[in-house]
Amino acid sequence: MNKIRGVGLGFRRDIADETIALSKESNPILKPDFVELAPENWIDMGGYWRDKLEQIAANFPISAHGLSLSIGSPDELDIPFLKKIKSFLNEFNIQIYSEHLSYSKCDNAHLYDLLPIPFTEDAVNHVIERIKQVQDILEMHLVIENVSYYTPLAPKISESEFIKEIVTRSGCKMLLDINNVYVNAFNHNYNEHNFIDNLPLNEVAYMHIAGHDKISDDLIIDTHGQPIIEPVYDLLNWSLPKLPEVPILLERDFNIPNMESLQKEIQQIKEITSKHWNKIKVNA
């Protein structure tokens, strides 16, 4: 139960039982091929939720998407925390560990949200050093995600240059979040196709897709609280021919609908991927 491929679904407590029950879904196009979870939400957890974790692990391959690494923080890396992550990944035979290209801890305080790293050369070097440190400890690739952001912070280079430099020079892999590209292109008024073309696409090892909330004429918030919108499906469809065949994860964190609606979204993603990637078609 460890090979991650196809289309996955985020494993959340609100839908834990329904997600576990999907292991019995007979129609492969309506069934997630894997689940993704945040290790921080499950490490050390005993009792009822530990049972749920064991049940999902017995039925689906798992990928891990971290929250608290804070790879871009001015603060020191938290080594004991990384060691906990490592033993969790080992325990559940998890082969993909991704994190956000952002910071969530500063001045010794966790903020539990993702703040934008300044797009500067020194930040690039800082993050590269830390990614290497993380990869040395974990003895695996770190997969780094392009995050959505609402303001750039003291930028000196472009966002795509920032990401590309970090990924190519650190030797890490990239998580391409299609919705985040769409959200950022809208919020910062750039062309999403040019942006994707400037990314290190050969290093993409994993993808995210999600819905968002448009809260004003010029601002979208990346809530993961709505269904995926058509333009984001279109952007996925446009991107896939440029990418290696990688797992894709449907993120839904808030305002979670019934499982049938999520399954319809999984189906729609699978239909798009099967147009470009044969193996997923076979798998589905």
Partner: peptide, 11 residues
């Protein structure tokens, strides 16, 4: 300048 900008936003 970079870390200061990060600290100011976090703060």
């Amino acid at each position: 300048t970079t870390s200061l900008a990060q600290q100011k936003l976090a703060n």
